[in-house]
Simulated scan of single mutants.
Amino acid sequence: MDIPHPTHNLVVGYAAWLFGFIGAHRFYYGKPVTGTIYFFTLGLFFIGWIVDLFLIPAMDREAAIRSIPGPIDYNVAWLLLVFLGLFGIHRFYMGKIWTGLLYLLTLGLCGLGYIYDMWTLNDQITLINGSATRRLS
């Protein structure tokens, strides 16, 4: 079954899997609890990480079902979070100017805000995109 407007990209999912032994792909696909477990156990001692290589297509489909497409692109926001998150660039992209400035001045609230956003970024984007969709209807 094809998803008409996929929100996550399979290529980005597999690229995150390369760092999956620290849970990157699980955070990307909206699984923060198992992402955290993978982070502290090196992908469940690398075994879960290898198994996930085959589970990523299913994770991608599940994320597309849970996520709402809209003006904020999940892939762009995740790339900005991963590479520039301590500077709040992902928050500027999502229109959260004040918290973006706060992250910029405090290095992502000394890293705690960065970790919070790893846990909640998909939900934050879904809320923004859902609000934008409702305004358009």
Score class of each variant (00 low, 15 high):
57 P>D: 08
58 A>Y: 09
58 A>W: 12
59 M>Q: 05
59 M>A: 04
59 M>N: 03
60 D>S: 12
61 R>M: 08
62 E>L: 11
63 A>P: 06
64 A>P: 13
65 I>G: 04
65 I>L: 14
65 I>H: 11
65 I>C: 04
66 R>P: 04
67 S>K: 08
67 S>F: 08
67 S>I: 05
67 S>N: 15
68 I>G: 02
68 I>E: 09
68 I>P: 03
68 I>H: 05
68 I>F: 01
69 P>Y: 08
69 P>A: 10
70 G>D: 07
70 G>H: 06
71 P>C: 08
72 I>G: 01
72 I>S: 03
73 D>M: 02
73 D>T: 00
74 Y>M: 07
74 Y>C: 02
74 Y>D: 04
76 V>Y: 00
76 V>P: 00
78 W>K: 05
79 L>T: 06
80 L>K: 15
81 L>W: 08
81 L>A: 06
81 L>H: 11
82 V>Y: 12
82 V>P: 01
84 L>C: 09
84 L>P: 00
85 G>A: 04
86 L>F: 14
86 L>D: 03
87 F>T: 10
87 F>I: 13
87 F>V: 12
89 I>H: 10
89 I>Y: 13
90 H>P: 08
90 H>E: 07
90 H>L: 07
90 H>K: 07
91 R>W: 12
92 F>W: 09
92 F>S: 08
92 F>I: 11
94 M>W: 07
94 M>R: 15
95 G>A: 13
95 G>C: 13
96 K>N: 15
96 K>H: 14
96 K>P: 11
97 I>W: 15
97 I>L: 15
98 W>T: 14
98 W>Y: 12
98 W>P: 10
98 W>F: 15
98 W>L: 15
100 G>W: 14
101 L>Y: 10
102 L>Y: 11
103 Y>N: 04
104 L>W: 15
104 L>D: 12
105 L>I: 13
105 L>R: 02
105 L>M: 08
107 L>K: 01
108 G>C: 05
108 G>W: 04
109 L>S: 03
109 L>D: 01
110 C>E: 11
111 G>T: 11
112 L>H: 08
113 G>M: 02
113 G>T: 02
115 I>K: 01
115 I>C: 01
115 I>D: 00
116 Y>P: 00
117 D>S: 02
119 W>M: 00
119 W>L: 01
119 W>H: 03
120 T>Y: 06
120 T>K: 09
120 T>D: 02
121 L>N: 03
121 L>F: 05
122 N>M: 00
122 N>T: 00
123 D>L: 06
124 Q>E: 11
124 Q>L: 09
124 Q>D: 08
124 Q>G: 00
125 I>P: 01
125 I>D: 00
127 L>P: 03
127 L>R: 15
128 I>F: 07
128 I>L: 13
128 I>T: 06
128 I>D: 02
129 N>A: 10
129 N>Q: 11
129 N>E: 09
131 S>P: 01
131 S>Y: 08
131 S>H: 10
132 A>H: 09
132 A>N: 11
132 A>P: 06
133 T>R: 15
133 T>Q: 15
134 R>F: 06
135 R>T: 02
